[in-house]
Design a protein around this nucleic acid. Sequence first.
RNA 1: GUCCCCUUCGUCUAGAGGUUAGGACUCGGGAUUUUCAUUCCCGCAACAGGGGUUCGAUUCCCCUAGGGGACGCCA
Length: 517
Amino acid sequence: MKEVRTRFAPSPTGYLHVGGARTALFNYLYARAQKGKFILRIEDTDQVRSTEQSYHQVLDSLKWLGLEWDEGPEVGGPHGPYRQSERLHLYKEYAEKLIHEKKAYPCFCTADELDRKKKQREAMGLPYVYDGKCRNLTDAEVHEKKAAGMEHTIRFRTPAKEVIVDDIVQGSVRFDTAIIGDFIIVKSDGFASYNYAVVVDDHLMDITHVIRGVGHLSNTPRQIMIYEALGWQSPHWAHVSEIVGSDHKKLSKRHGATPITAFRDLGYTARAFNNYMALLGWSSPDGREYMTIDEQKSLFDVARCSKSPAMFDVFDLTKAAEVDLAQASIQDLEAYLFPKSKLNWLSNQHIRATPDAQFIQEILPFVKNSGVVPEEELSEKNERLRGILLSLRVYLDTLGQIKNYLPDFYLPFTPDPKDYATSEYFLAENFVSLSLAFERQIEQMSKGEKTGTLSPDLVKEAISLVGKELGIKGKPLFMGLRLASTGRLEGLELPVYLSLLGKERVITRLKKMAALK
RNA sequence: GUCCCCUUCGUCUAGAGGUUAGGACUCGGGAUUUUCAUUCCCGCAACAGGGGUUCGAUUCCCCUAGGGGACGCCA
């Protein structure tokens, strides 16, 4: 059987967003599932809008997601070049062939002229189709106009017929070519237009499956006609649903789509993000939702993709309704995230599943970014930091959230009496004696220990001794001590918590809390 | 306006001519955790509406409504 070859073909006219990234993911997963190849091609024939900066941004995003392409920019391959701007000679070659065979023709209509006609039609409420003014120019006329230096485009001579797109996702869809008309395949700047270039490239690159957004479905009959005109075989089509935002509008660069890099900067792992994107429009046969990328690579099938649009339900509209999420800073985006989204749940699951060493390595930049950990302790070898991070990981939906927990372990303790005014454990009569007894026990028991260290076992022992000494047990004992020694009513298991805080900080907190009374 | 597509819990979705319409996230309740989170259990919650076809329709067909997309010398 023929090797499956899929491709992702972004245009470098902006950043990569969820819509495009999910298309890339599907192409990648399908190629992997079929043991085929995944090709990256850059569609930069829009000379006005394509930028080098955008090109790098798109590649960076794909790399972060881990969607490694087998052929394409930077890695090369036997079907190159992989940037359309470097394939101009190919488009020219086949355009000439089409003209020679009278399947395409030069058109000298100006943009202004066309624009005027279009507006007229629209004013009458009619759809615009090219009127075919240049369709039947004689060779002499063409010659003459060219000699006069008139700019021209090349139009495809659309046959009157019905084209059927046989689509893996959408089924059979019929189109009447009368509403398409003769369309431009080469622009007046000599660059191929999308519908033409994509056919030449896909054919020459031996693409077997075109997986893309359903927005392209209505372009497909044009492409099929070109395949036919050139005597080539069409690839298999798979038009997957679009992704819409919480407002039910398609995600696009102009409309609320957040750059992929923003999710990286927020502290989502690529593993979690891919998992979430895979679930947008696709479901695994057994219904499993938490999946590693390897599982996705073996399970993915474009035939299981849904036709109806999927909502990227990650931002809280009640907070972000009037905001342009595409422009928002990371800080702002964080505030607009819906804290209980499925993405966050998946992200938390993936963070927990990450091997320790990898987790530490991945979170370190975010730890650094929090700005509260001293430079000399900012290392994956630092035992205390490792302990803190590993203990805290179950709380994290994103790696970026670590900054909410770190100050407690690294910044000076400054309790505010107001916070405790109504706390039953603080108000308890024995609060101070509990505190004093605990401090004494800790001091006494840790005499022989290394400076600063406080083992969980030692803390456990101290707690029970204090309980016996003062005749307190149960919740009042544990919660009282928790408040007295940490200043908080929630957090890690107390012995672990205090051990990570270290002896000095615990003693300081005990003193400060007791002094508040 | 023309053409195309879509519509199952709030969200992601499974499903199939006969099911108590299933799962996941969220939410509510309970248990465990001497705290919070976790974990576990239980629960709330859906086939857009109207016509057909059929013994039987949420599933097939038509219409309506709503939504989306395409109608470029953008991709």
